[in-house]
């Protein structure tokens, strides 16, 4: 029923999205990975940063300046969020593939699982946050989780859990999707 409006809204929605953060983040990451490749340095940490940063960019794209105007349209806010998400996630995954290609051959973390897990967690956090700060909170979650992962020693339980988004991304994504589904009416 709402598939047709969503399909028709895809193009104008993509025009309403600010692409400069994705382009900027992708450019910086490519340059850094090229440096890593040239210097033959390990780049797994860079890819972890890339996953969190791209997830943050994807979640940030949910910011819609016309939210108030569009609030009472029949196409619900969740459907509009999912449309925005799909529109940004596809290029973000393409950026991920490009980063994997550019990265030094020694790279082990090539799966987009962490990126998808962080994105799902960010969106879920946004959905469950107060509307006024939803996107800001959602976009900050991947950043904060990464910072936690990098700082908490891995030999404690919290440190172990902080690394789940990298080590077990699919269960993390599944839990986040569950939270997302539970909050779909919000």
């Amino acid at each position: 029923m709402t598939i047709t409006p969503l399909a028709q809204a895809a193009r104008p929605t993509s025009r309403s999205i600010r692409w400069s953060p994705l382009v900027g983040v992708a450019a910086v990451l490519v340059i850094v990975l090229l440096v890593a490749r040239t210097a033959q340095r390990p780049s797994d940490v860079v890819m972890a940063i890339a996953a969190a940063a791209l997830a943050s960019v994807v979640v940030a794209s949910l910011h819609d300046p016309a939210t108030d105007l569009l609030a009472p349209v029949p196409v619900s806010v969740m459907q509009r969020r999912l449309l925005r998400l799909a529109l940004v996630l596809v290029p973000a995954l393409l950026v991920w593939v490009a980063l994997v290609v550019v990265a030094p051959p020694s790279l082990e973390a090539t799966s987009p699982g962490p990126l998808l897990a962080m994105t799902a967690v960010g969106v879920a956090a946004g959905v469950w946050s107060p509307a006024r700060r939803a996107v800001l909170v959602g976009a900050s979650v991947p950043v904060l989780w990464f910072a936690l992962d990098m700082t908490v020693p891995s030999d404690v339980l919290l440190g172990d859990a902080a690394g789940w988004w990298r080590t077990d991304p699919w269960p993390v994504a599944a839990v986040a999707l569950g939270a997302l589904v539970a909050g779909r009416r919000r």
Binding site: S20, V28, S56, V143
Partner: peptide
């Protein structure tokens, strides 16, 4: 939008830390 600043700053400062 302030929300775009978060990922950009994150990338800048955490890549610097590598």
């Amino acid at each position: 939008h302030l929300v775009s600043v978060v990922p950009l700053l994150f990338v800048v400062w955490f890549l610097v830390s590598v």
